[in-house]
Every structure is written in C-alpha cells, then in structure tokens.
C-alpha cells in the first residue's frame, strides 16, 4: 500500500483541555511521536480491514470446524472429530487429487506460455502497447462469462471443440464424463484467463533487466536463446517465484470454473470427476448444511495451500539456481 493512497490520518495533536505544552521538551516529544507512530497510523487501515475480513474469519472458521454445526440449526462441540472424519473421507481426497491435477496441468503450460509471450512482447515491434494490453483482456472478462462460454465450447453434442475435432475424424468427446477431459477443459479456462496476466508480470520484470547485459552477451556472440536462458531466466527468478505462489493460491481455490463447467452442479461430474476442494467445502456447508465439516475442509485447504506454497518456493528456488 502506498502512502499516497492511504486515507489521511489526523496528525497527532496535543490533547484538548490539557495545559499547553510548556516549552521545548513536550514539543520535541510530539515530534518524536509523529516520526515514530505516524507510519503505523498510515498502514493501520490495511491491518484493520485484514483483521476484520481476513484474520477474524480465519480464526472463527477454525472455531466452527470444532463443532457439529447445522447451518440453520443447532451446534455442539466435538473437538477434532471433523478433521478425523476428513482424513478418511474418500470424497475429500478425491477432491484433493482433482485440485492438484487441474493445478498442475493448468499452471505448468501457463508459466511456460507466459514466459514465451513476455519474451515476444519484450522485443521491438509495431503496435507494441496494443499487444501488451491485449494479452490482459481475457483477465478482465468476468469468470462467470468465461465459464459459460467455455462450457458451451466443450459441449458434447453442440460444442465447437468437438466440431473441430470431428473435422479431423476424432470421435466426439464427452468432456464432462472423463476425468482427463474435464481436467483439460477446466485447465484451458484457467489458462485463458491467467496466461496474459502472468506474461505482463514477467514482462515488467524483464524490462528491469539492464540492457547492457544483453549487449555484452551479444558482443560475446551469445544467441537469442542463450541470452534468454543465461540472462533472462536467472534475473527473473524472484518474479517466477511470486507468479508460482500466486498461481498456487488461486489454483488450489479453484471453484467457479469447474462449477460452471459442470452446469452449476456442486458434485463436479457423475463420479466427482472434477470436484475441487473448494466445491467439496461448499457442498458440505451449503448443500448438506454441515457447517462444521465444511469449515474443517476450509481449514485443511488453507493448510494445504500454505504447504504447497512452501514446496513450490523451495522447488522453484532450487531449479532456478
């Protein structure tokens, strides 16, 4: 948060009603307080909002998850029973596998594509700004619209994708019925929305790389490809870590795309082929009214995300070294 956008906090003043500060020491103290505490006042709005809408719900959900809690009824404390049940819940683990699977087949091509796109956009070309803004367009489309349009594209009977496959003599695919096909369809939606966004982030980082590095490499006879692998990628390392972590957080919370792909049904396919953890949480809390169990799923998901972020961080840091 920048200081300029923060709402102006009232400057610290001498409390009204007290006798005026007698001479230098008091004024000095005020000036010191100003220096010392004003920054906290400026950043306070964020922490207040985060406390109210981030930290408090987090803690409260943990509390709820320790109860057998009917959403529109009564509740009783059950300790860790919900978590115990969750650990042996086959539907939950199915959702975890689906989420991870979709995450991997969405994120890997997305990062590679975004890097390639950024590299292209970083070159001198006509109408550069137009292209750079253009890659962001899918991201500003509403996720519901994307979900509905892609749901139609991947339709079994009247979908465009099956029509195109048919031109090459491939049989119609029932995208919702197979695990692999549903994962691919959902990953396509995710990539459609987020590749351009990540490309722009990579592009920004690429532009911060000093030009003279490339110039001296070129003088030494390094090819474009060599320059990319030996200069661009290592210099982008912190940015790649950032992008992977943001994608992890988003990818593991995947909800709207698979929901709309499955015609709004929370089961995610007849055999839960593409039900994600977020969908399973919603199913328990708002379809089964089992609020405590839903909260336990929410917390487990939270811990899973934290764990995945740590693993990704370590992996990306090592591989980029």
């Amino acid at each position: 948060m920048s200081l300029r956008t923060a709402p102006a906090a009232p400057p610290p003043q001498a409390p009204v009603g007290e006798p005026p500060a007698p001479g230098r020491p008091a004024r000095y103290r005020l000036a010191r307080w100003d220096l010392k505490y004003s920054p906290y006042l400026y950043i306070a709005p964020f922490f207040l909002l985060f406390g109210a809408f981030g930290a408090y719900p987090l803690v409260y959900t943990a509390w709820v998850s320790l109860h057998d809690w009917n959403l529109i009824g009564s509740s009783s404390f059950v300790g860790l029973d919900n978590y115990r049940a969750l650990m042996v819940d086959a539907d939950f683990w199915n959702a975890v596998v689906n989420t991870m699977g979709i995450f991997v087949i969405a994120t890997v091509p997305q990062m590679v594509l975004a890097l390639a796109l950024a590299n292209l956009l970083n070159r001198g070309m006509r109408a550069r700004t137009l292209f750079r803004m253009g890659v962001l367009v899918p991201n500003v489309t509403s996720v519901a619209a994307v979900g509905i349009v892609f749901g139609q594209l991947f339709g079994r009977d009247f979908g465009l994708v099956n029509y195109l496959l048919g031109l090459f003599g491939v049989d119609r695919v029932d995208w919702q019925a197979n695990t692999w096909s549903s994962w691919i369809a959902i990953a396509t939606m995710v990539d459609w929305r987020w590749t351009g966004y990540n490309a722009l982030i990579f592009l920004a980082a690429m532009q911060a790389i000093p030009r003279d590095l490339y110039e001296s490499a070129a003088i030494d006879g390094a090819s474009r490809g060599r320059q990319f692998w030996s200069i661009t990628i290592p210099m982008l390392r912190p940015t790649i870590i950032f992008a992977v972590i943001i994608s992890t957080i988003g990818g593991l919370q995947l909800f709207t795309e698979p929901l709309l792909f499955g015609n709004g049904r929370i089961l995610g396919g007849s055999l839960r082929q593409f039900q994600t953890v977020a969908m399973y949480m919603y199913e328990n809390a708002f379809q089964r009214f089992n609020y405590g169990y839903g909260s336990a799923v929410a917390w487990t998901l939270f811990m899973l995300i934290a764990l995945m972020c740590a693993v990704n961080y370590l992996l990306v840091r090592r591989s980029a070294r």
Binding site: Y56, Y60, Q253
Partner: peptide, 17 residues
C-alpha cells in the same frame, strides 16, 4: 451471522455468498 461471513471470507470466492 458472523459465522456465515467467516466461511465466506475464508472461501474467498467470486460468488457473493
């Protein structure tokens, strides 16, 4: 009431639950 707000926020979903 706060319970509903709580879960909704943790879910951080696009759906205005």
């Amino acid at each position: 009431n706060s319970a509903v707000v709580a879960l909704t926020a943790v879910m951080a979903l696009g759906l205005a639950a």
